[in-house]
Design a protein around this nucleic acid. Structure first.
Lengths: 185, 185
DNA sequence: ATAATTTTGTGATCTACATCAAAAGAAAAC
DNA sequence: GTTTTCTTTTGATGTAGATCACAAAATTAT
């Protein structure tokens, strides 16, 4: 919990009321390795903060797993499409290590909206998310295999260290063999 | 203006007060062909609705223009990163045909926030935007050249008809020659 | 209309990366 | 600690699409 507050306070300073509300309106969850946090068909009505562990977001395309992203400690994640539109998810969220999460439901998130500081945080975080998606899409869309791998190293070195090579290959859209060769070089 | 109201009313029904506020707080803009609506370095503090014409979003990478997207009638657009984070834009927004726009500044957008219906609209639209970005990224990241072109045909047939071949090639990240060959086949 | 410029089309090559195959290494199960 | 299974490495081969070079067509300017 302290971690989540620290994370929020990178954006805005919280007063005690807001902190208390956070304590009250969030929950801890634990998922052991390989367990699913969300599966296709479920409506995603939570946002999670990853306290410890690693979580992979992927979907099936023609039976093949396509890894979208892998989150590491101190990041927030959700199945955005499902959450934002209240539709059944097409994605899996899976713990790829034993993971501890702090979650907040959509309903509780609305209750938190009465704290201006928390609203300011959400806006700032969304702004940052937008910017990241933007940057990210541009980077992965145009570079060659090496360039994409280097981009991952820049923005998510932890992911590169801990995730399986095959999952990394899938994120940047190249074959496992190519990632292996990039690493050797 | 009627067009913008119709567009909003696809999401939520507006009462007369909200419509009046929209009239008051939005402005018409006109840009002739090839004129810039936004240039790098400027802070983007507006969201536009494209009433007539076509607008291209692109940036320079190593001196090369990389086209991000081309908007056609009845779409809203902005330079998201700059708007959301209040930072200087890295992108150009350029009219690729004579274009009529309806714009709303960030300040006026905040004033409109007192109309719950308009807030509901913004949320619904944002939700849709998120979902689209998601879909879009997945589609363009994984398919081959033909598949990407077909995806564009699905979601933006108007763009495909009216935009320059070179710009289309840039959006999907393939060479102009390849797009020409896809079209011939 | 005519010339200049820009955009698109077509063939010939080249290359980055996929795919196939099989071995080596690590992790999980027993 | 051995076996089984999963993951990564390494080499050989194939291919989609890039790049180059120029021709045809379409726009734009004069």
């Amino acid at each position: 919990m302290e971690q989540l507050i620290n994370y929020i306070e990178e954006f805005v300073k919280l007063d005690d009321d807001a902190k208390a509300a956070l304590h009250e309106l969030t929950e801890m969850e634990h998922f052991s390795k390989n367990k699913y946090i969300l599966e296709p068909g479920q409506r995603c009505n939570k946002i999670w903060f990853l306290k410890r562990g690693m979580v992979r977001k992927f979907y099936l395309n023609d039976g093949q797993e396509e890894t979208v992203w892998i989150h590491t400690e101190n990041q927030t994640f959700t199945s955005l499409e499902s959450y934002a539109q209240n539709t059944p998810s097409k994605e899996y969220l899976q713990a790829c290590e034993d993971s501890e999460l702090i979650c907040i439901t959509k309903g509780n998130s609305e209750k938190l909206a009465e704290f201006p500081k928390i609203v300011a945080f959400v806006n700032a975080m969304m702004g940052r998310e937008f910017a990241n998606i933007d940057k990210h899409t541009k980077a992965l869309n145009q570079r060659d295999a090496k360039g994409k791998y280097e981009y991952l190293r820049e923005i998510a070195p932890e992911l590169l260290k801990r995730a399986k090579l095959g999952h990394i290959a899938s994120i940047i859209g190249v074959s496992r063999e190519t990632v292996s060769r990039i690493r050797k070089a």
